[in-house]
C-alpha cells in the first residue's frame, strides 16, 4: 500500500499497463497542444500582451500625461468634470493611475489603433476595462505601452482591480468609443 514501502525492491522496471500508457501519452500531447496554442496566438492571434515597457520617473510620466491632456482635451465630462482627451487616430495616448483615479478620460474612435501609455504615480493599480474585460497590471516607475484597437462603441469603465488602499473601490475611469469621424 502507499503507506508502506514498495513490495518489490526494484520497482522501476515494473511493466506499465497499456491503459496507463495511453493516458500518459494523451496527457502529454494535450500539454504540447496547449503550449503550442500560446505560441500560435503570438503569430496569428489578435490579443497579446505588449512587450514594450520603459522605466520612467513618476513625475515625468505625470508631466507627459498633463501635456497630452492639455493638448487634446475636447470637453469636460458632463457629470464628473473630468477632462476628456480625444487624441488623433493612430496616435499616442496617456492615462495615469493614482490614488484613487484614472486620469484623464479618453475618447477613442472605433476601428482605430492607439498606443496607450499606462503607468502609476504611487502604488500598483489594476487597469480593468469593462465590460470588454481586458486586465493589465499598472506599476509605478514603469510605463507600459499597449497597442489597442476598440471594436465597439459606447462608454467603458476602467475599474481598478489591484487593491490600492482605502479608496480602491472608488477608483473608476472611463473610455468613450465613438464611430470614426464622430464625437460623443
Amino acid at each position: 500500500m502507499a503507506i508502506h514501502p514498495p513490495e518489490q525492491t526494484i520497482w522501476w522496471n515494473e511493466r506499465i499497463e497499456r491503459g496507463e500508457l495511453v493516458w500518459i501519452g494523451v496527457a502529454f500531447l494535450w500539454g504540447v497542444i496547449m503550449f503550442s496554442m500560446m505560441v500560435y496566438w503570438h503569430i496569428d492571434g489578435k490579443q497579446n500582451l505588449s512587450n514594450e515597457a520603459y522605466r520612467i520617473d513618476p513625475g515625468v510620466f505625470e508631466q507627459r500625461t498633463e501635456e497630452f491632456t492639455k493638448k487634446f482635451t475636447v470637453r469636460e465630462d458632463k457629470n464628473t468634470g473630468y477632462p476628456v482627451a480625444k487624441p488623433p487616430a493612430g496616435g499616442d495616448v496617456y492615462m495615469l493611475a493614482r490614488l484613487w483615479e484614472w486620469w484623464p478620460m479618453l475618447e477613442l474612435e472605433k476601428g482605430q489603433t492607439y498606443r496607450l501609455h499606462l503607468s502609476s504615480l504611487d502604488w500598483q493599480h489594476g487597469f480593468s476595462l469593462q465590460p470588454t474585460n481586458i486586465n493589465l497590471q499598472v506599476h509605478p516607475g514603469i510605463m507600459h505601452v499597449v497597442t489597442l484597437t476598440p471594436t465597439e462603441t459606447g462608454s467603458f469603465g476602467v475599474v481598478c482591480n489591484e487593491f490600492c488602499g482605502l479608496g480602491h473601490h472608488q477608483m473608476v475611469g472611463r473610455i468613450y468609443v465613438v464611430e470614426a469621424g464622430k464625437s460623443q
Binding site: 496566438w41 490579443q47 497579446n48 500582451l49 480593468s128 474585460n133 481586458i134 486586465n135 493589465l136 497590471q137
Partner: peptide
Amino acid sequence: GTEQINLILHNT
C-alpha cells in the same frame, strides 16, 4: 494560467 487568456481574467 494560459498566457493570453489571463488578459481577460487577471485580478478578477
